[in-house]
Design a protein around this nucleic acid. Structure first.
Lengths: 114, 114
DNA sequence: GCTACTACCTTGCGATGCAAGGTACCTTGT
DNA sequence: ACAAGGTACCTTGCATCGCAAGGTAGTAGC
């Protein structure tokens, strides 16, 4: 079938949003990758996988929005914790503005009002 | 620069949304491609180009969500008008539900409330 | 016939979500 | 000791889709 499935529909919606949801979660405090996957999975529609998160975190780190530090775990392998840099915080604010305006634009078109 | 620009940020946001904005516009009545580009350009954040719209319309037509008919124009080359099929109308409703829930999910994460 | 506008469409690139697969640490049970 | 299972990291390859750029053609006015 070439018709879009619900899963694909959501995957497309997530584009460009997950990245900033990760930043938003990190605004509340340091997290490690595996944990972020679980936190996002807990939110309806934002569920994603490690294959998405790790490359994403890597990219954000390269762009200077995140810093990392390895820390041992009580039970399991060591974890790589991520936290926001000043630049990351700014990027989050910028996105926040864009998101609000974008959301309003889509609503306007979808609602069909005038 | 590998850091995301505003333009790229918006382009990613548009993913999976423009498609349904087009359906929403067509719900109000038949339109032709060039006109859709202009209507979307009038909405802040949804501005796009012909390189986006034509392949998109083509895809929606192949998937059976749209039907087309050529019609002469008073001034200029003939236009290909698109209109929703029953399947297209259903797809729009389905998206509507997804969008509302997705929007709420993103808001929840961004607002950081609990 | 030249220019400009309208209107259609295609090609090639870049960005990125994801399934699948791989490595390694740690704990528990046998 | 060893196997099994959970935690945690990461990479590869594919598919999707927005877009800049470029191409074709009808119509109107000079």
């Amino acid at each position: 079938m070439s018709v879009t499935t619900d899963a694909q529909l959501l995957a497309q919606l997530r584009r460009g949003v997950i990245e900033h949801c990760v930043l938003a979660l990190l605004e509340r405090g340091p997290r490690y990758g595996f944990d972020l996957v679980r936190e996002l999975a807990a939110v309806e529609g934002l569920g994603t996988s490690e294959g998405t998160i790790y490359p994403l975190l890597s990219r954000l780190r390269k762009d200077g929005l995140l810093e990392t530090s390895w820390q041992p775990s009580d039970q399991g392998p060591p974890r790589r914790y991520y936290e926001l840099t000043a630049q990351g915080r700014t990027a989050l604010e910028v996105f926040h503005r864009h998101w609000r305006s974008f959301r309003a634009a889509v609503d306007e078109v979808l609602e069909g009002d005038k």
